[in-house]
Design a binder for these strands. Structure first.
Lengths: 122, 122
DNA sequence: GGAATGGTTAAGCATGGACTTGAGTATTGA
DNA sequence: TCAATACTCAAGTCCATGCTTAACCATTCC
């Protein structure tokens, strides 16, 4: 679908359970590629691909010294997703307030469910 | 695999751009299935499947009156994901703080965690 | 009652992505 | 210098999921 936004790449990275586990592990401190690969019942190469995905979207960072690559969490990596969520929670809660208002209204004919289309963005 | 947690289902729902667009649309107010299907260049059935996915993980809610099904945002739907993110951001930031402390320390042998923490990195 | 409207389900195709295999490169240590 | 270590890359397999088609309810309107 060609949605190459930051949010899109972060969500695609997080949707895979293995990658979330790698993030958990790294949030407890840096680790090398082989240290990360060890606990998972999968090949080195597979884990490496996950790491590349995580690094490509800015969730982790890695540095190679000699023949050892050390990975660590990129602290601000989840910020874009956190922002995306708060942006979307606020309208939702405004809508809730609206509903609350309507329900709190003393007496009046309930607004017809059929025509919702009257826009309500302020 | 088999990670059927709430987080997992929410992420799987959000990773699809079409479903995120549906959420955007619904955050501006409720809509029927056909109203939701209209702007997308895809079949009714496809949109319906997306709606079922969104409802299954608690991001939207729907109600059928007569032959018309009306969908709306479930206000607290994103909360589990928001929580997940804050839980993971705090350790990451603590780690940053920790690093900051160590770097700020005048002189002393670092508390040998596993060699990880002493990599200086601004 | 019968047609139109709005939605629902099931089956099947097609694509993307996770994972493997296998070969290759660079670094380290004896 | 040679072998072991640590990682990298490319190609291929396989399965989950998005989308379509096609048939099928249920409700509303004439």
């Amino acid at each position: 679908m060609l949605n190459h936004s930051k949010i899109d790449s972060i969500l695609r990275a997080l949707v895979e359970p293995t990658r979330r586990q790698i993030l958990e592990r790294l949030s407890r401190g840096p680790a090398t590629v082989s240290q990360l690969a060890e606990p998972f019942g999968m090949t080195f190469a597979a884990v490496l691909q996950h790491l590349q995905t995580l690094e490509a979207c800015g969730l982790i960072r890695s540095e190679k010294i000699g023949r050892v690559r050390t990975c660590r969490i990129e602290p601000g990596g989840l910020a874009p997703l956190a922002d995306w969520i708060t942006e979307r929670r606020i309208p939702a809660e405004r809508h809730l307030d609206r509903l609350g208002q309507i329900l709190a209204e003393p007496d009046q004919s309930p607004p017809k469910v059929q025509d919702q289309e009257k826009d309500e963005q302020t």
